[in-house]
Design a protein around this nucleic acid. Structure first.
Length: 475
DNA sequence: AGAAGTTTTCT
DNA sequence: GAAAACTTC
């Protein structure tokens, strides 16, 4: 039996799953840091390549994990497994229960470490921000991972496990994964890009440079929240733009806040958080849904956002919200299918942020204010020169500016003149947002004002702390 | 971190 | 008459 320590590495050196073979001096260090690692899945020689980002999150599920560990135990005697605590979705929770069972059966000590200041198993979030700050201020450990001696497994686990082939091809337009790339993004953000952070945060095109773009690295565990937080503090001290950095750092806290919230209330994933909204959107239209899903709604900014998301796996926060708003308010479709679909598109899918945000935007919490985005107003406000629209809906790129925002307002003569016929080259608007705005607004406000809805909202809020009330606008 | 409608303030 | 402030859904 081999007793060497075993490592699985992400990109250069990042452990994704550490499986220890009783070599305490070597395996203590990663335990004390909070950078996290997802379960991995491949014969080690292929890992550096495999763990670039894929076009979907790579989750090994229950049966695959069981087989993975069974395979490992055929070659090595496992004494201890380190992993991060993951605030995941139902299928990953089921997987973890299976892993725990496996460990118990085989006498393996599974040690999980907290992630991003999120606390497992609490009922109330009082003083949570203070806890978060103290976690972020802790020393960042730099374990000498390279000292760990790695060993190779025979064969290729991904191939053997028949993981869906879509996981195996990295989309060429995606950000590159790995810790070394993560550090380049971190550096360029705080040195240069952060200077336009507040100014560009809602702009679909310019946010792609001026936002950090660190979210995939955080989601995949190439960087820890603590590393990012401390890099921001350092940059601020060294003459960086204080206001911009401050805004960014406070969003890091909200990032973790929502994960904490989801950790404590996982039903955000699969049911309306407020049951008062259970029957409101019960007319499904596959045709409307497909138009949204493929970016063929006839509203240029909506379509541009969806096509961009499909192609690059990234959109800024506001444009994500707008897509949700269009689906749930203007098309008046239930959120669940769209939520799972968008989750599958995000390179930076983070369950704890995604599902609570989706429901908040869909208006199914009862305690957030109703927000119905007007896609034309958003387009004129946030993509005033239509650079983003022109890029992602190229059929519109030669139209005069006003028609890029509202192509359906062209006359037949103008359609001829510019060679774009609405209904043929680009769709008619699938709904009239002026009309759907009124209907959605009327429906949502009437439900929100019902006694029953308020009571349910109060019950949900009772489980939440003071900070939450600020967030929800004192509703 | 919404949008539309209405009232008040500023030029 | 436009911009800002405030209200309401």
């Amino acid at each position: 039996m081999d007793h060497l320590p075993l490592k699985l590495a992400i990109d250069d050196r990042r452990p994704t799953l550490l499986i220890g073979f009783l070599e305490p001096s070597l395996i203590n260090a990663p335990q004390s840091d909070e950078r996290h690692w997802r379960f991995v899945y491949e014969s080690f020689s292929d890992l550096a390549e495999q763990l670039k980002f894929y076009n979907q999150q790579l989750y090994l599920l229950q049966t695959e994990v069981q087989e993975f560990f069974t395979r490992l135990t055929e070659q090595y005697q496992i004494k201890i497994i380190f992993s991060h605590e993951e605030t995941g979705i139902q299928i990953t929770y089921d997987r973890d229960k299976a892993v725990a069972e496996f460990c118990k059966t085989n006498g393996i000590n599974w040690t999980e470490t907290p992630t991003g200041g999120v606390i497992r198993g609490i009922r109330k979030r009082n003083n949570w921000p203070k806890h978060w700050y103290s976690k972020m201020e802790c020393l960042v450990e730099n374990p000498e991972i390279e000292q760990l001696q790695s060993v190779k497994l025979k064969g290729s686990l991904i191939n053997d496990l028949q993981v869906d082939s879509k996981f195996k091809t990295r989309h060429p337009s995606f950000q590159e994964g790995g810790e070394s790339k993560a550090k380049l993004y971190l550096k360029s953000f705080f040195e240069v890009r952060v200077n336009n952070y507040n100014k560009h945060i809602s702009k679909p095109e310019y946010s792609r440079k001026s936002c950090s773009r660190l979210s995939p690295y955080l989601a995949w565990g190439n960087l820890s929240m603590r590393q990012v937080y401390q890099a921001g503090k350092e940059a601020s001290k060294n003459g960086g733009s204080k206001r911009n950095i401050q805004s960014f750092l406070s969003r890091l806290r909200w990032h973790c806040h929502f994960i904490q919230k989801f950790e404590m209330m996982d039903r955000y994933e699969y049911m309306n958080i407020n049951p008062a909204y259970n029957e409101i959107r019960d007319n499904w239209s596959e045709q409307k849904y497909q138009a949204w899903e493929t970016g063929n709604t006839g509203y240029p900014l909506i379509d541009a956002c969806m096509k961009c998301l499909i192609e690059t796996g990234y959109l800024n926060f506001r444009m994500r919200s707008m897509l949700v708003s269009f689906l749930t308010h203007h098309l008046w479709l239930d959120w669940k299918r769209g939520a799972d679909y968008m989750a599958s598109l995000f390179l930076d899918f983070e369950p704890g942020i995604h599902y609570p945000q989706f429901q908040m935007q869909a208006g199914t919490t009862g305690y957030n204010t109703v927000r119905i985005y007007n896609p034309v107003k958003q387009s004129e406000d946030n993509d005033p020169d239509a650079v983003f629209i022109s890029k992602w809906v190229p059929v519109l790129k030669n139209l005069p500016l006003q028609f890029k925002h509202k192509p359906w307002t062209m006359t037949a003569m103008e359609e001829n003149m510019y060679g774009v016929k609405i209904g043929k080259d680009y769709p008619f608007p699938i709904v009239d947002v002026k009309q759907t705005y009124k209907e959605a607004s009327k429906n949502l406000w009437s439900i929100k004002n019902k006694r029953h809805t308020r009571e349910e909202a109060r019950k949900i809020l009772a489980l939440q702390n003071e900070e939450e009330r600020v967030e929800s606008g004192g509703d």
